[in-house]
């Protein structure tokens, strides 16, 4: 009985079905543990957490420079900025918008930098449902390769104040 002191000699190895279950459960845990390093080396979707310390002012300047040199159009007053294949692009999260609109080509690989000017934000790419954390002071680099084309939405999924629900952005991927 679990509420009374156990009889002497309780320390013994499991037997029967219990022993079998402990073995099965341990095996399953080991399989799951190995799956992650396996996917890190052989899988195509990983969060490596590549990031650099950056001041809010410096990051804002980088975004501005990126927008000035690479803008290809505007939509609803927001610049559409194209990243050169293999190149670096800078996305800004702030209360309560993502800036600018990013334009990519399907099948090309890009280094997409994300950081925040103010609070913590969430980069949530829909309808793919890919999610990454955005912190002020950290330049978070996602090395991404779009495998589908179309217009994708970015929504913020980290609480960032009263206007949080209206914080959106856009990524356009062309074939």
């Amino acid at each position: 009985m679990s509420i009374y002191n156990p009889p002497a000699g309780w320390f013994k190895a499991p037997t029967g079905a219990e022993r079998l279950w402990v073995g099965l459960a341990l095996t399953w845990c080991i399989i799951m543990s190995l799956a992650m390093p396996y996917w890190h080396f052989y899988g195509k979707q990983n969060s490596t957490g590549e990031s650099y310390r950056v001041s809010v002012a410096d990051y804002g300047a980088r975004v501005q420079q990126f927008v000035e040199s690479n803008t290809v159009g505007t939509e609803q007053g927001v610049p559409i900025v194209e990243i050169a294949p293999g190149g670096d692009g800078y996305l800004l999260a702030r209360m309560w918008a993502f800036y600018p609109i990013i334009k990519l080509k399907k099948g090309q690989t890009y280094r997409l930098h994300i950081s925040s000017l103010d609070l913590q934000h969430g980069f949530s790419l829909q309808p793919l449902n890919m999610n990454f954390q955005v912190l002020p002071g950290y330049d978070h680099v996602l090395t991404i390769t779009p495998t589908s084309s179309g217009i994708f939405s970015i929504i913020c999924n980290e609480f960032c104040g009263i206007g949080h629900h209206s914080m959106t952005g856009r990524i356009i991927v062309e074939d």
């Binding site: 918008a97 829909q126 629900h165 209206s166 959106t168």
Partner: peptide, 24 residues
């Protein structure tokens, strides 16, 4: 959540947002 609906979020119609976003 599998459809991408965020937690801690007041309005999944994103009223007032700069771009129209909606869920299935």
């Amino acid at each position: 959540g599998s459809y991408g609906v965020p937690r801690r979020h007041w309005d999944i119609e994103f009223t007032g947002g700069q771009f129209a976003v909606g869920f299935d």
